[in-house]
């Protein structure tokens, strides 16, 4: 059963990203991205991380994607993006990308070498305890970061008086 869910979700996710690469309509791209994020949320749930799953759906599939859609509406690009041309640059990128992919697979294997299959990584309670003890400073600083991002975004995109 778990395998079935896993396979369905991974196919959805990878498929959505692949579709995004192919499609040239930005609005569609954004919707594919929502699909990818939502299925990733499901995968998080399979990994015994219910809180991360919930946050993923709320923040990514919810907030960030709404932001993207608003931005797309604002731009109101009538013409679709032009077709991509294959260039030397693209070939170089493809080569490097392949190398990177191989390296990542190797790295993943190396990372898993010392793993001991123990049970769940601890529930939400353990996570909360960790956030408010070991990671307390980081946690508090993220709140500052969000505030700074808010102010920064307003300063950047807000209507200028002279504009």
């Amino acid at each position: 059963m778990a395998w079935a869910v896993f396979i369905v979700l991974s196919v959805l996710c990878v498929g959505a990203v692949a579709a995004m690469i192919v499609s040239r309509n930005q609005a569609h791209n954004a919707l594919f991205l929502v699909l990818a994020f939502a299925s990733l949320g499901g995968l998080f749930g399979l990994l015994d991380a219910p809180f991360a799953a919930a946050v993923q759906v709320l923040v990514y599939a919810g907030a960030i994607m709404v932001l993207f859609l608003f931005a797309i509406m604002m731009f109101n690009l009538r013409r679709p993006a032009p077709r991509e041309k294959k260039t030397l640059r693209a070939a170089l990128a493809a080569g490097l990308g392949t190398v990177l992919f191989v390296e990542l697979v190797l790295a993943a294997r190396k990372a898993l070498a010392g793993s001991v299959p123990t049970g769940a990584p601890g529930g939400i309670e353990g996570l909360g305890r960790l956030l408010f003890t070991d990671y307390l400073y980081a946690f508090e600083i993220t709140s500052l970061l969000i505030l700074a991002a808010l102010v920064g975004a307003l300063a950047l995109a807000g209507k200028k008086e002279d504009a």
Binding site: A49, A63, I64, A120, L127, L150, G152
Partner: peptide
């Protein structure tokens, strides 16, 4: 999950937060 430790989950929360801030800016 593989190592049975919650630190990875905590870091995910930070990544999501930073990603949200980054998306806004």
């Amino acid at each position: 999950k593989a190592f049975g430790r919650a630190e990875g989950q905590a870091l995910v929360l930070f990544v999501i937060t930073v990603a949200a801030a980054e998306a806004v800016v």
